[in-house]
Protein backbone atom coordinates (compact mmCIF):
# COMPACT_ATOMS: atom_id res chain seq x y z
CA UNK A 1 0.00 0.00 0.00
CA UNK A 2 1.27 3.43 -0.94
CA UNK A 3 0.22 6.99 -0.24
CA UNK A 4 -1.63 7.00 -3.58
CA UNK A 5 -3.74 4.04 -2.44
CA UNK A 6 -4.58 5.76 0.82
CA UNK A 7 -5.70 8.82 -1.17
CA UNK A 8 -7.83 6.49 -3.32
CA UNK A 9 -9.52 5.07 -0.20
CA UNK A 10 -10.57 8.57 0.88
CA UNK A 11 -11.81 9.35 -2.60
CA UNK A 12 -13.92 6.17 -2.62
CA UNK A 13 -15.11 5.98 0.97
CA UNK A 14 -15.41 9.61 2.04
CA UNK A 15 -16.20 11.19 -1.30
CA UNK A 16 -13.63 13.97 -1.57
CA UNK A 17 -12.01 14.60 -4.95
CA UNK A 18 -8.64 12.96 -5.56
CA UNK A 19 -6.99 16.36 -5.42
CA UNK A 20 -8.60 17.25 -2.07
CA UNK A 21 -7.92 13.79 -0.68
CA UNK A 22 -4.28 14.07 -1.63
CA UNK A 23 -3.93 17.53 -0.01
CA UNK A 24 -5.59 16.27 3.17
CA UNK A 25 -3.36 13.18 3.43
CA UNK A 26 -0.23 15.29 2.88
CA UNK A 27 -1.38 17.78 5.53
CA UNK A 28 -2.11 15.03 8.04
CA UNK A 29 1.31 13.47 7.49
CA UNK A 30 2.96 16.86 7.85
CA UNK A 31 1.17 17.48 11.17
CA UNK A 32 2.39 14.09 12.42
CA UNK A 33 5.97 14.75 11.31
CA UNK A 34 6.01 18.21 12.91
CA UNK A 35 4.78 16.75 16.17
CA UNK A 36 7.47 14.05 16.19
CA UNK A 37 10.16 16.55 15.16
CA UNK A 38 9.25 18.52 18.28
CA UNK A 39 9.70 15.38 20.34
CA UNK A 40 6.02 14.98 21.03
CA UNK A 41 4.52 11.50 20.93
CA UNK A 42 1.46 10.60 18.87
CA UNK A 43 -1.20 8.29 20.21
CA UNK A 44 -3.61 6.91 17.63
CA UNK A 45 -6.11 4.83 19.54
CA UNK A 46 -6.80 1.53 17.80
CA UNK A 47 -3.60 1.78 15.75
CA UNK A 48 -0.58 2.53 17.91
CA UNK A 49 1.76 5.07 19.45
CA UNK A 50 4.75 6.82 17.91
CA UNK A 51 7.24 7.83 20.56
CA UNK A 52 10.45 9.85 20.31
CA UNK A 53 13.18 8.41 22.51
CA UNK A 54 16.52 9.95 23.41
CA UNK A 55 19.41 7.50 23.11
CA UNK A 56 22.62 8.14 25.01
CA UNK A 57 26.03 8.12 23.40
CA UNK A 58 27.50 4.62 23.33
CA UNK A 59 30.41 2.69 21.99
CA UNK A 60 29.53 0.43 19.09
CA UNK A 61 31.57 -1.80 16.87
CA UNK A 62 31.97 -2.04 13.16
CA UNK A 63 30.81 -5.62 12.57
CA UNK A 64 33.15 -5.98 9.60
CA UNK A 65 36.41 -4.77 11.08
CA UNK A 66 35.67 -5.18 14.79
CA UNK A 67 36.82 -1.64 15.31
CA UNK A 68 35.20 0.30 18.14
CA UNK A 69 33.35 3.45 17.17
CA UNK A 70 31.57 6.07 19.18
CA UNK A 71 27.86 6.32 18.41
CA UNK A 72 26.66 9.82 19.26
CA UNK A 73 23.58 10.59 21.37
CA UNK A 74 20.52 10.75 19.18
CA UNK A 75 16.75 10.81 19.05
CA UNK A 76 14.88 7.94 17.46
CA UNK A 77 11.25 7.13 16.78
CA UNK A 78 9.72 3.92 17.98
CA UNK A 79 6.30 2.60 17.08
CA UNK A 80 4.29 0.52 19.50
CA UNK A 81 1.34 -1.20 17.84
CA UNK A 82 -1.96 -1.21 19.73
CA UNK A 83 -3.49 -4.48 20.90
CA UNK A 84 -6.20 -4.02 18.25
CA UNK A 85 -3.64 -3.80 15.44
CA UNK A 86 -1.67 -6.78 16.79
CA UNK A 87 -4.84 -8.86 16.93
CA UNK A 88 -5.92 -7.80 13.41
CA UNK A 89 -2.52 -8.75 11.99
CA UNK A 90 -2.75 -12.22 13.54
CA UNK A 91 -6.36 -12.81 12.57
CA UNK A 92 -5.78 -11.70 9.00
CA UNK A 93 -8.59 -9.17 8.92
CA UNK A 94 -9.45 -5.88 10.60
CA UNK A 95 -12.36 -5.22 12.95
Amino acid sequence: MTKAEIVEQIYEKVGFSRRESSDIVETMLEIMKESLAEGEKIKISGFGNFVVRAKRERVGRNPHTGQEIKISARKVITFKASQILKTAVNRGHAG
Binding site: M1, T2, K3, E5, I6, Q9, I10, K13, V14, F16, S21, I24, V25, M28, L29, I44, G46, F47, I84, L85, A88, V89, R91, G92, H93, A94, G95
Partner: peptide, 21 residues
Protein backbone atom coordinates in the same frame (compact mmCIF):
# COMPACT_ATOMS: atom_id res chain seq x y z
CA UNK B 1 -10.82 10.89 7.00
CA UNK B 2 -8.35 10.23 9.81
CA UNK B 3 -10.35 7.14 10.81
CA UNK B 4 -10.49 5.94 7.20
CA UNK B 5 -6.72 6.33 6.84
CA UNK B 6 -5.84 4.30 9.93
CA UNK B 7 -8.55 1.71 9.24
CA UNK B 8 -7.30 1.11 5.72
CA UNK B 9 -3.74 0.87 7.03
CA UNK B 10 -4.89 -1.70 9.59
CA UNK B 11 -6.66 -3.68 6.85
CA UNK B 12 -3.58 -3.60 4.64
CA UNK B 13 -1.36 -4.91 7.44
CA UNK B 14 -3.94 -7.54 8.41
CA UNK B 15 -3.80 -8.75 4.80
CA UNK B 16 -0.02 -9.01 5.15
CA UNK B 17 0.52 -6.04 2.85
CA UNK B 18 3.40 -3.65 3.34
CA UNK B 19 2.68 0.08 3.58
CA UNK B 20 5.16 2.61 2.24
CA UNK B 21 4.57 6.26 2.99
Amino acid sequence: IVNTIFESMTEALAAGDRIEI
